[in-house]
Simulated assay, not measured.
Amino acid sequence: MNLTLTGKDTIIIDGRTLDLGDGDVAQVAFSNNLVEVTVGKNANALFAENATGNMAVLTLRVPRGNADDKYLNSKLAAQRKDLPGFVVMSGSIKKRLGDGDGNILVDTYTLQGGVIQRMPDVKENVAGDTEQAITVWTLAFANGERVLG
């Protein structure tokens, strides 16, 4: 039998361990292929590295107005004020995986060269929708790497 237990994950941006919201609090997505492949006449195959395949987009769900929301907002202000002078972000997500026998494996995504990709949205709701208490931040990183160990 194969078991995977997960919990006590850690999300870090610029050395800060983030205090996140509810649901999918952090998600890393790689939208582009690492390699492009075409097959031509006589089944000849062509392979080309696609550097944009290393790009990662990190989506974070942060409680609106908490210290991490304020920190990310200050990074946004600095980025908008002077992009060439902006100090890019780095980060990591460490997912702890157990096998049911007490052994732990850490699935780590390391992110480098990060900027805030888009302004966070806002809404007001008078029917008790808790989404209005969350700020969704979208960060783009030039490079993402995964290590299992």
Results as ranks from 00 to 15, higher is better:
residue 3 L to T: 08
residue 10 T to Y: 01
residue 10 T to W: 00
residue 14 D to P: 01
residue 18 L to N: 05
residue 19 D to P: 00
residue 19 D to W: 00
residue 21 G to I: 07
residue 21 G to Y: 03
residue 23 G to L: 01
residue 26 A to H: 00
residue 28 V to T: 11
residue 29 A to R: 14
residue 32 N to F: 03
residue 32 N to W: 05
residue 37 V to L: 07
residue 38 T to W: 00
residue 42 N to S: 10
residue 42 N to W: 01
residue 43 A to T: 13
residue 44 N to V: 09
residue 46 L to K: 11
residue 48 A to Q: 14
residue 50 N to P: 04
residue 51 A to H: 02
residue 53 G to P: 00
residue 54 N to H: 11
residue 54 N to V: 03
residue 57 V to N: 15
residue 57 V to D: 10
residue 60 L to K: 05
residue 61 R to K: 15
residue 61 R to N: 08
residue 62 V to S: 06
residue 62 V to C: 11
residue 62 V to M: 06
residue 63 P to M: 02
residue 73 N to C: 05
residue 73 N to E: 13
residue 78 A to K: 07
residue 78 A to C: 03
residue 79 Q to L: 05
residue 81 K to G: 13
residue 82 D to S: 12
residue 84 P to V: 12
residue 87 V to A: 14
residue 89 M to P: 09
residue 89 M to C: 00
residue 93 I to S: 05
residue 93 I to W: 03
residue 94 K to D: 14
residue 95 K to R: 13
residue 97 L to I: 14
residue 99 D to K: 01
residue 99 D to H: 07
residue 109 Y to P: 02
residue 110 T to D: 12
residue 112 Q to I: 09
residue 115 V to I: 12
residue 121 D to K: 09
residue 122 V to A: 14
residue 123 K to Y: 03
residue 124 E to A: 12
residue 125 N to W: 10
residue 125 N to S: 13
residue 128 G to C: 12
residue 128 G to W: 06
residue 128 G to F: 01
residue 129 D to L: 10
residue 130 T to R: 06
residue 130 T to C: 01
residue 134 I to R: 03
residue 136 V to D: 15
residue 138 T to M: 08
residue 140 A to S: 11
residue 143 N to H: 15
residue 147 V to N: 11
residue 148 L to F: 13
residue 149 G to M: 05
residue 149 G to H: 10
